[in-house]
Design a protein around this nucleic acid. Structure first.
Length: 110
DNA sequence: GGTCTGACTAGGT
DNA sequence: AACCTAGCCAGAC
């Protein structure tokens, strides 16, 4: 089911392509996006790819870490922004600020 | 072109 | 359950 890697070098556009397919009201983990893009085990590169993203057309806020939380980064403003955007899409947060992966995780094959 | 850093993760203590 | 480590790889310097 994984896409073929056409180059040894990771192309971020594959990652962006997957992220763009995440439907409104759903989320995916970094590892999941990496796997769907054809780069299993490269979750870290997904996070980095999103960090250099300036294209607002890509729903970067729908990508969270494997613990169901928003990953911390250099600019903490984006953390609260991400939470606001997700809540606006109907996603609810637990008391500890976590998201239920079982409930909101995007399942591409459904 | 070597080193360091980072929006990650799984597995071990 | 909290913390530590290794593996991962593209950019910046």
């Amino acid at each position: 089911m994984t896409l073929s890697v056409k180059s040894k070098k990771i192309h971020y556009r594959y990652i962006y392509d997957v992220v763009k397919q995440i439907p409104c009201g759903c989320i995916a983990t970094y590892g999941q996006v990496a796997e769907l893009a054809g780069f299993p085990g490269h979750a870290r590169q997904v996070g980095y790819a999103l960090s250099v993203l300036r294209n607002t057309a890509i729903p970067w806020h729908r990508v969270i870490n494997a613990k169901g939380g928003i990953s911390n980064r250099s600019n903490p403003d984006y953390v609260s922004l991400q939470q606001i955007l997700l809540e606006h899409e109907g996603i609810t947060f637990n008391a500890d600020g976590g998201i239920s992966l079982a409930k909101y995780r995007w399942k591409p094959n459904e």
